[in-house]
Each structure stands twice: as structure tokens, then as C-alpha cells.
């Protein structure tokens, strides 16, 4: 049994909120420069350079990369031998979000009720996903999600007969319809299988895999590469101003599913697809 104090959790979440929103991952920065060298449109090249410049300013000044500092999605991995002391875990996480968004000059974008739409003014509550694992690990990933890209995400319950081709068609259709809205170049998270909500969860989790790293599953890796190539032929390009860099990566996760179903979710991440992680 290992004890983790809630005040430590609050402090960690606070820092991760600020880091995630102001520091773009090295993986994405490298991908910008790599893509700028092979981008076919001159304007597209310029946009990619501008995005790199924007990220450099954000990091140097610890200013948000994007004004939409998102709804705060938090992935908690907690070992079953860990005991939380000092209060309720989710309250500690929300307190960290509250402090991080205040101290980091981050935008508060959450409304309390989807119909009344009154801003909570502290960006809480977060959307928290828990995964219980063996051992005594306590790991948190903060992944603020902007809604320019979230709004263009889609879920569809395909028929098993539609198979892999059906999944590919749905992904391409979703990206094409999204056009400039999700701030391309995008990261495409795909979740296939499970139930309706499991596929959606997987598609979000898939966005966390660093850009440019291969899928450990060889078969999925081949599908991802094929989809990336096809997406980059759609012509949308950086900022949607046209070009051959519409996506930086396609990341796919799958799960066993029901004999009657083929759920597929596409979660689009903008070029800033932000996340920061830490352990206690």
C-alpha cells in the first residue's frame, strides 16, 4: 500500500495544465519542420513555419499556444495498491485545474449547463478518465481539448460487413467534411471496436501517442500509414488554405467487439494536440 496525498495531486494537475497549454511537444515541432520540407504548396509551407514560430513564442513566454485552452481532459492511471489521502481525488484534480487556469492566464471555456450555458469561470469541471492497474503507480496525463477540432469529431456504428474498408471510408469522409475547422494539420485519433462509448474513449486516448512513433501493432501500423497518405491527398492543407499536409499523424486503437457491431470513432486533434504528463 502506497499513500498519495491530494494536495500533491492538485499541485501536479495545476502545473500540467499550464505546461500542456504553453509547450507544444517536441514530436509535433519536429513534424512541423519535416512536413514543411515536403509540403507541395508554397502557402502551406509558410503556414507550417508560422505555426512553428507561434509555438516558439508560446514556449518562450509561457503563453497559450491557442486561445482555446480547451475543456480539460484528465487521464488518471492508478495502481490498486495506492490509497488517496487528504480528500476526494476528483475534487483535488478539479482544484488543480482551477489553479492552473488562473495562474497560467488560460481561457475559461466551460459552461455549467449545456442548455443554460453560463460559464463556470474556472474551467472546471474536468472530464476525468480513470484506469485501475496492478501495482502502486499514480500517473496523470492532462490533455486540454479545444472544440474547433472536437466539434468535427464523429462516431458511427458500422455493420460488420462494412469491415476495414467501411472504417477507412468513414475516416476520410469525416476529415474531408471537417476541412479547415479543426485547424489542420491535424492528428487523427481512431477508436474501433468495443461498444459505442468505448470506441469514443479509445479515439481520444489514441491522440496521446507521440507523433511519428509507429503503432506497436504491425497490422494497425499499415492501416495508419495508408490513411495518412490518403488524408494528405485530400488537398485541405495547413490552416485549410490548401496543400499536402492535412494530417501529421493517424493513431489507431482497437478493442474486442460484439458479433453484431463495428463501432468506429474519429477524434480529431488540432495541430497543437496538447498533453503533459507526470507521476507521483
Amino acid at each position: 500500500m502506497r499513500i498519495v496525498q491530494t494536495d500533491k495531486i492538485t499541485g501536479l494537475v495545476q502545473n500540467l495544465c499550464i505546461d500542456a497549454n504553453c509547450i507544444i511537444g517536441d514530436d509535433i515541432m519536429q513534424s512541423f519542420s519535416k512536413c514543411a520540407s515536403c509540403e507541395k504548396s508554397a502557402l502551406g509551407k509558410e503556414i507550417l513555419t508560422t505555426l512553428s514560430k507561434n509555438a516558439e513564442i508560446a514556449k518562450r513566454e509561457m503563453s497559450p499556444i491557442c486561445q482555446d485552452t480547451g475543456m480539460t481532459v484528465v487521464f488518471v492511471t492508478i495502481g490498486q495498491d495506492v490509497r488517496i489521502e487528504g480528500g476526494f481525488l476528483e475534487d483535488a484534480i478539479n482544484e488543480g485545474v482551477r489553479r492552473g487556469y488562473e495562474k497560467g492566464y488560460l481561457r475559461k471555456s466551460v459552461v455549467k449547463d449545456p442548455f443554460d450555458r453560463v460559464n463556470t469561470k474556472d474551467n472546471t469541471p474536468a472530464v476525468v478518465h480513470y484506469q485501475i492497474v496492478p501495482g502502486d503507480v499514480f500517473h496523470i496525463t492532462v490533455a486540454p481539448k479545444g472544440f474547433g477540432s472536437e466539434n468535427m469529431s464523429r462516431l458511427k456504428m458500422l455493420k460488420p460487413s462494412q469491415g476495414l474498408d467501411g472504417v477507412k471510408d468513414f475516416v476520410l469522409e469525416t476529415i474531408f467534411e471537417a476541412g479547415a475547422n479543426p485547424c489542420p494539420p491535424i492528428i487523427v485519433g481512431i477508436g474501433v471496436g468495443g461498444t459505442m462509448e468505448k470506441s469514443a474513449y479509445l479515439s481520444k486516448k489514441a491522440l496521446l501517442r507521440p507523433v511519428g512513433t509507429p503503432n506497436p501493432d504491425k497490422a494497425l501500423d499499415i492501416i495508419e500509414k495508408e490513411l495518412l497518405q490518403k488524408i494528405n491527398k485530400l488537398g485541405i492543407g495547413p490552416a485549410g488554405f490548401g496543400g499536402s499536409t492535412t494530417a501529421l499523424a493517424v493513431n489507431m486503437l482497437t478493442y474486442p467487439t460484439h458479433i453484431a457491431g463495428l463501432p468506429v470513432s474519429v477524434n480529431i486533434g488540432c495541430h497543437a494536440t496538447r498533453h503533459a504528463e507526470g507521476e507521483l
Partner: peptide, 13 residues
């Protein structure tokens, strides 16, 4: 007019 989505730190300048 369209501006560059996500280039927000730069545009603040």
C-alpha cells in the same frame, strides 16, 4: 477573411 487557426500567441502580438 480567414486567419490561421491556432496561431494565437503570434496573433496576440
Amino acid at each position: 477573411f480567414a486567419a490561421i487557426g491556432g496561431a494565437a500567441a503570434l496573433m496576440a502580438k
